[in-house]
Design a protein around this nucleic acid. Structure first.
Lengths: 356, 356
DNA sequence: TTGTATGCGTTATCAT
DNA sequence: ATGATAACGCATACAA
């Protein structure tokens, strides 16, 4: 019946620990501990070390990291909090983090908030109870109670993708302002002047930076962006992008020539909306995204977007975390990783129009 | 300098524990433990319980789960081992697992193997050292040393997506045989007779079941499948799918009418390969996939595929794990979740051909 | 170089 | 109903 449980218990009971190795080696278990853990102070004679090591291997000794954690107050585990792993921006970040931390023996606890702040705070509390050594927060808001909570708890924190207004914790982000400037400049260079934008909530640094990148570029070029050409989505999803586009297409007396979307999923939604009403892209309306999630080059038309270095962002975040563990000063507080414009079919050219 | 560390240490030192609550409540800490932990045996007087509880809240007591784990030999954490989270089939599985286990207070440790067996065994050892309560294995092979290792270690295991030959551990999988039968029947019903297939390594139950689904259906229909119409990829990726398709298109004297791909990523690769040599889909060659990863309906042409219920598979796996923890007998050993054919543009019709 | 002893914060088994 | 106490397995200051 409770076979698994029983076997588990058996195993547990049979599990070889330091004292077992010590007994079999004829030394005290503290000696075994020193031998097996490189970096333990106090040197050991070579013959003892060798004997202990071979006995340990023979017996199949594996340290119980829970016990070690209780003693050292370090679990060598870190949390990664994201809105939803199903958003394709997150898996590469996880990979990057693993690349940086796995070799150091860290494990990654992944939690999805489902976009719910209370869930998120709860997750932090639970991770704190588990004594995670640090937390990667991919949900960081410009004013963020979660960041504050982590600081109250004294948990080392590294924000990924986003940063707080006051840059209150180390963060590794994409240069969204620069990326969106380049994108917008390219849109202008392609001849477009009647531009619409789909923005995301401005409490996210990514969304705000991208918006400023657009706005500044347009302002400097003297291109107007009327209110009815601006829509904000509550969430960067396909569904919301579609809905926002429907709004855009029916607002004002004419439709815009191009829609600059805050990210790829929203842009996908925009494409869907256009298709549904029979608009062809890019001849009727051009569309741009941001992120370069997979398969974007396969859709019709291929989406013009900005390629973020998500894996690198994750990896850099991991390295910042390690530096923090070692007490190194974090500088700069916000590390920006570059990105690149990818021009593809979804952005056309406004050839027939002449500036007045 | 080591500000984070110092603060952390401060916090750690300041962390309120059972004995603090006990002192402030004027009771013994074992009493506090009983009060705070529902399910502790021995009843407590209401007034004491209330007092302790309020003091605990006031002091901001949070149990140290590491200490509890050392004592109970249960960490309420479980591992999820996948080849690579960047494969879009895994995130929904993670979500499903979280849905099932998060409410029960479990945390999920995610690890990518990078398709490396040695890495995978190492991950298992490390998870064992962390005393995870169980492991979800998404990499299960028909003969699997990793499964054996988990069993040696006495770690409760639930396979997801795949199963071993002897069904040696509980598993929740897709009905790949049935799904691929339906797909193949539809291909036949669409008039195709010159069929090619791209298979995956047969040490994976998914790959083998899908292959049998194809083969049995063709055999029963009396449709031949010559060797030069069969290619196996070493990995189910876009890159390998593309390469395999290039092989298929140049093998034999003519090209096949349709390519049945073992999964979506491979099918994407197939589409790429066809595009590169100027073949149009589906008029020159039809292509089918399997999985229904996101955005497949956006590509040109939209990919005909089989929709798996990945989230449900993850959730069911979580429930199986919970049942196992409670010592309930697992039955059946392999739970199969249904799937549905999605017919889209990438599969055409062979109208002109007349059966001889 | 190695052994001794204590504590990490709980849970659980004794008493009382 | 509550208190005392012994593990859990390891790390480490201190002794030898």
């Amino acid at each position: 019946m409770a076979d698994g449980k029983t076997k588990r218990a058996e195993h547990r009971a049979a599990r070889v620990k330091l004292s077992d190795v010590a007994a079999a080696s004829g030394v005290h278990y503290s000696t075994v501990s020193r031998v097996l853990r490189p970096g333990a102070k106090g040197r050991i004679s070579d013959d003892v070390a060798e004997r202990v090591r071979s006995v340990a291997k023979e017996l199949g000794y594996h340290p119980n990291s829970i016990a070690a954690s209780l003693r050292t107050q370090s679990t060598r585990s870190i949390g990664l909090i994201v809105h939803d792993m199903n958003d394709p921006v997150y898996p590469p970040i996880l990979s990057g983090i693993e690349d940086a931390l796995s070799p150091q023996g860290f494990a990654v606890l992944v939690s999805n908030t489902g976009y719910d702040l209370n869930v998120e705070l709860d997750i932090v509390n639970r991770m704190a109870a588990r004594l995670v050594d640090g937390i990667f927060l991919a949900t960081t808001r410009l004013q963020d109670p979660v960041v504050e909570r982590c600081q109250e708890l004294g948990i080392p924190l590294v924000s990924v993708l986003r940063q707080t207004e006051q840059e209150t914790s180390p963060a590794v982000v994409n240069d969204c302002y620069g990326g969106m400037r380049v994108m917008t400049e390219h849109v202008l260079a392609s001849g477009f002047r009647d531009i619409a934008v789909i923005l995301a909530p401005q409490y996210l640094s990514t969304a705000r930076e991208r918006w400023h990148g657009i706005k500044d570029t347009l302002d400097q070029a003297g291109v107007a962006l009327p209110d009815h050409r601006i829509v904000a989505v509550p969430r960067m999803s396909v569904k919301e992008g579609k809905r926002a586009t429907e709004t855009l297409l029916t607002a004002g007396e004419s439709r815009p020539d191009v829609i600059i979307c805050v990210n790829d999923l929203v842009a996908i939604g925009a494409i869907r909306a256009c298709r549904e009403v029979g608009l062809s892209i890019p001849s009727d309306v051009s569309i741009t995204g941001y992120n370069d999630i997979p398969l974007l080059d396969m859709i019709n038309p291929a989406l013009t977007t900005v390629r973020m270095q998500l894996h690198e962002i994750g990896k850099a975040a991991g390295q910042v975390m390690l530096a923090q563990f070692e007490g190194q000063p974090v500088t700069p507080m916000t590390q920006r990783v570059g990105c690149a414009l990818l021009v593809r079919g979804s952005l056309g050219q406004k050839s027939e129009s002449q500036p007045t």
